[in-house]
């Protein structure tokens, strides 16, 4: 019985991971992609780990259950933090939003943060970034 539920849960998890990847392809700018992909893939991975925990419980392999639960908690805690860091980096490095006229409540704070970065002064990096920009265009 537990094994059957495990199969179902793992199937749902795989389906959500695929959906997240489809979202990664279909949506039109970094922010939307990150929202869709992070949510669906995190949820899918957690469901797969829950399925593994169910299999562990069914076969009496308790260490498998404990490890799967710890791993699920870890993924659930770290994945949104990673997405937040990447999006903040994206906004501060000046990636625009695809939808024109979208509401933007972050512009003021981003300006302050950029001034702080400049006040700290990173002259070596600014030289490297121009090179890289020209490389991306080519």
């Amino acid at each position: 019985m537990l094994e059957r539920i495990g199969y179902i849960v793992i199937g749902i998890g795989v389906a959500f991971e695929i959906l997240g990847c489809i979202g990664l392809i279909r949506l039109s700018d970094v922010y939307d992609r990150a929202v869709a992909a992070t949510k669906c893939v995190t949820m899918g991975t957690c469901m797969m780990l829950c399925g593994v925990a169910l299999f562990g419980a069914a076969s009496g392999n308790w260490s498998m259950l404990v490890k799967a639960v710890i791993c699920a908690l870890f993924v659930l805690l770290t994945s949104p933090v990673a997405a937040h860091a990447v999006l903040r980096g994206a906004y501060l490095s000046g990636v625009p939003m695809a939808h024109t006229g979208a509401e933007d409540g972050f512009a003021q704070r981003a300006g302050e943060l950029r001034r702080q970065h400049q006040a700290n002064g990173q002259p070596a990096e600014s030289a490297g970034q121009e090179q890289e920009a020209s490389h991306e265009e080519a």
């Binding site: 793992i10 990847c21 992609r33 990150a34 992909a37 994206a90």
Partner: peptide, 25 residues
């Protein structure tokens, strides 16, 4: 853009955890 690639690498790494689950079972 570069953030697109970064987020994709992150997602790829999370998919690998799924592979590990399958292999464990």
């Amino acid at each position: 853009t570069a953030p697109d690639r970064t987020i994709s690498v992150d997602i790829l790494g999370t998919l690998m955890v799924g592979f590990c689950c399958c292999m464990a079972l």
